[in-house]
Amino acid sequence: MLHTENLVVRFGGVFALGGVDFTMNEGEVHCLIGPNGAGKSTFFKVVTGQIAPTQGRVSLSGHDITGQSSAQIVRRGIGIKMQTPQLYDDMTVEETIWLGAYRRKGKAGARQRSAELIDELRLGPVARSEVGKLAHGLRQRVEIASVLAGDPALILLDEPAAGMSDADVAFMSELILRLRGRHSFLVVEHDMRFIRSISDRITVFHNGTIFLEGRCDEVLSDQGVKDIYLGKGTHHA
C-alpha cells in the first residue's frame, strides 16, 4: 500500500532521514516509534506532503506521490490526522463530519455518512455542540470521524493518544481495531500501551534510519530497542 525508496531529507548539512526504505501492507496497523529526533516525525511529514524529500521516492498503491501537497495526497485516498486537531471551532460536530463526507459523497451521501459516524463514534450527545467547546478527547474523536467521512484507504495518525484520558485512549484503540481491514493505519506514537494494543507491525526509527522492524512483541522485547530508549544505543547521538 505505502512504499518508500531511499528516502533522504537533509536540512543544510544535517540528515533528518538517511535513506529510508519502508513498506506497509494493505489492511494493517503499522506503528512508527523512536526517541525524539529519531526521524519518525520527518518521515511522517514527507509521506503527508508537509515537506518534500531531498531525494528518494514515495508511492501509494504503485502511484508515485513524491513531493505532492497534502491536499493532493488526500485526494488520492489518504486520510491525515495531525497531533493537534485541525478543526473549525465555531462549527458543530455534525457540520464538521458532514463537511468531511461532502467532498467525496455529495449532499445526500454526506448526510447519511455523517449520521453513521456520529453513531459509530458515540458522538450523538454532542452532535449539535460547537467543536471549540468540547474536551480534548471528544475533539480528537470528531477529527477522526471527519477523516473517516472521506472513506480513505490509508489513514495517517500523528500521536493520536497524546493528552488523552485512559478512557479516551481505550476508545481510540477499540475503534482502530474495529476499523482495521476496512482501512489501513500508519501511526506515529509514544504511548507504548496504546501501541501494544493496536499494532500489527512496528518500525523503530533511530538517527534518521530504520533500526528494526517486526511484530510488536519481538520489537519491544529487543535489547537494542530498549537501549535506544534508555540512551544506551551503540549508534546513539
Score class of each variant (00 low, 15 high):
Ser184Gln: 10
Ala237Met: 14
Lys107Ile: 11
Leu156Cys: 11
Arg75Phe: 05
Gly56Thr: 03
Leu117Gln: 04
Ser41Lys: 14
Asn6Ser: 14
Cys31Thr: 00
Ala71Arg: 10
Gly124Asn: 11
Pro152Arg: 04
Phe205Asn: 04
Ser69Phe: 05
Asp90Leu: 07
Gln68Pro: 03
Glu28Asn: 09
Asn6Val: 06
Arg215Gln: 13
Leu179Lys: 00
Ile202Asp: 03
Glu218Val: 10
Thr4Gly: 13
Met164His: 02
Arg201His: 07
Gln140Leu: 03
Ala170Thr: 01
Phe44Asp: 00
Gly137Arg: 07
Asp227Cys: 14
Ile118Pro: 03
Asp200Tyr: 05
Arg128Pro: 08
Val58Asn: 05
Ala135His: 06
Gly124Pro: 05
Gly137Leu: 08
Gly106Asn: 10
Cys216Phe: 04
Val14Arg: 08
Gly208Glu: 06
Gly163His: 09
Val142Ala: 02
Ala16Gly: 11
Lys81Thr: 03
Gly18Ser: 14
Ser69Met: 04
Gly100Met: 04
Ser146Asn: 05
Ile33Phe: 08
Arg193Ile: 01
Arg111Ser: 04
Glu218Phe: 10
Thr48Leu: 09
Pro35Tyr: 09
Glu5Asn: 14
Ile51Met: 13
Tyr88Val: 13
Leu220Cys: 09
Arg76Glu: 02
Thr84Asp: 12
Gly214Tyr: 02
Arg182Cys: 07
Pro160Gly: 01
Gly19Asn: 06
Tyr229Asn: 07
Asp119Ser: 13
Phe211Ser: 06
Thr234Gly: 13
His3Trp: 13
Leu2Asp: 01
Phe22Glu: 08
Asn207Phe: 12
Leu177His: 06
Tyr229Ala: 07
Ala237Glu: 15
Lys107Asn: 09
Ala71Cys: 05
Lys40Met: 03
Ser114His: 10
Leu177Ile: 07
His190Pro: 03
Val47Ile: 15
Thr23Gln: 15
Gly231Met: 10
Phe171Ala: 02
Leu179Gly: 00
Gly79Asp: 03
Val74Ile: 10
Met192Asn: 00
Glu28Pro: 03
Ile202Trp: 01
Gly12Cys: 05
Arg75Trp: 04
Leu7Lys: 12
Ser70His: 05
Lys81Trp: 02
Asp64Glu: 12
Arg182Ser: 15
Ser41Phe: 12
Gln50Met: 11
Ile210Asp: 06
Thr54Arg: 11
Gly214Glu: 00
Ala145Met: 05
Arg122Ser: 10
Gly62Leu: 12
Ala145Thr: 01
Asp90Arg: 08
Ala52Arg: 14
Asn207Gln: 15
Lys133Tyr: 08
Tyr88Gly: 00
Ile195Gly: 03
Asp222Leu: 14
Asn36Phe: 15
Leu175Pro: 03
Thr203Asn: 04
Gly62Val: 11
Glu189Trp: 00
Ile198Leu: 01
Arg10Leu: 08
Gln223Ile: 14
Gly124Phe: 08
Ala145Arg: 04
Gly124Tyr: 06
Arg193Lys: 11
Arg111Glu: 02
Ala149Glu: 00
Glu5His: 15
Ala162Asp: 04
Val9His: 11
Ile33Ala: 01
Ala108Cys: 11
Val93Asp: 02
Thr84Leu: 11
Leu32Tyr: 06
Gln68Arg: 10
Leu117Asp: 01
Gly49Lys: 09
Leu148Met: 00
His236Ala: 15
Gly19Lys: 05
His236Lys: 14
